[in-house]
């Protein structure tokens, strides 16, 4: 299992290095802009970082799905399925790699964001005033909304978990497409429909089950919990189909 996970990280390395490199460049631009007082440069840096925080997490998830697809549909599949490892372990390694990567990416961008915001505030005193104005305004609209760090963190965690479950939905859809529908006429459309259906189901559950919870922070955390349970179910189902039906 340890080895399987190691190679899953190796397979996704280049994508992560690209993301990290881009983030480093944007961060550099941000800091240089800040020190030299060039607003256009640091706002560009900040914009790219913000974009990257969302796109990066999406890219990590997508990469994982694409690699699973390649690992089942090209000759490279022999590399995994020739080894004495069950599909539970093979898929499990992918799920674990993706979970850890998503978590690390979220923590990384969250920490970087916090750092940059405090740097910016220290630099531009006016911004700190603006920030408290915004939070007060939001609290004025709905007392449940607070922009404290903990809420932001639960928000990030909830988002991460729901994205994780989306990735596991995509695993299932791809495995169904490869193991069960291969060569069938409606394969592509069918598996895509399955993916949409599962995602919709999960989102419905997320909303339905958190209905009536007062604290926003709790909502985010409960949603994260539901997403993780959902992901676990997707994992077991997917691995079972692979184990029984997958031919590479």
């Amino acid at each position: 299992m340890k080895n399987l996970i190691k190679y899953e990280f190796r397979k996704t390395l280049s994508v992560k290095l690209i993301l990290l490199g881009t983030a480093a460049l944007a961060q550099l631009a941000f800091m240089i802009g800040l020190w030299t007082g060039r607003e256009r440069i640091y706002s560009l840096g900040a914009f790219i970082l913000l974009l990257l925080a969302f796109v990066g997490v999406a890219v990590i998830g997508l990469t994982s799905v694409l690699i699973l697809h390649r690992d089942m549909n090209t000759k490279q599949s022999y590399m995994l399925f020739m080894t004495p490892n069950s599909c539970y372990k093979i898929l499990g390694a992918k799920v674990i790699e993706n979970g850890i990567s998503l978590l690390l990416a979220t923590v990384f961008f969250f920490a970087l964001g916090a750092l940059d915001v405090s740097m910016l505030m220290a630099h531009e005193g006016r911004l700190a005033d603006l920030w408290s104005l915004v939070t007060q305004f939001l609290e004025g609209i709905d007392s449940r909304i607070t922009l404290d760090t903990e809420t932001l963190m639960s928000f990030a965690f909830g988002l991460l978990a729901s994205w994780f479950s989306t990735v596991t939905c995509a695993y299932l859809a791809d495995v169904v497409s490869t193991a069960l529908l291969k060569g069938k006429r409606w394969n592509g459309l069918g598996s895509f429909a399955l993916f949409i259906l599962l995602s919709a189901l999960m989102n419905w559950a997320l909303l339905r089950l958190t209905d009536g919870i007062a604290s926003v922070r709790t909502v985010f955390l409960v949603q994260a919990g539901i997403s993780i349970v959902f992901s676990a179910v997707m994992y077991v189902l997917t691995a079972q189909i692979m184990e029984r039906k997958l031919s590479v």
Binding site: K75, Q76, S77, M79
Partner: peptide, 12 residues
């Protein structure tokens, strides 16, 4: 041990 006709190693 099975050796396939086609190459199957990862590109890296």
């Amino acid at each position: 041990a099975y050796m396939s006709t086609e190459p199957y190693f990862y590109a890296w």
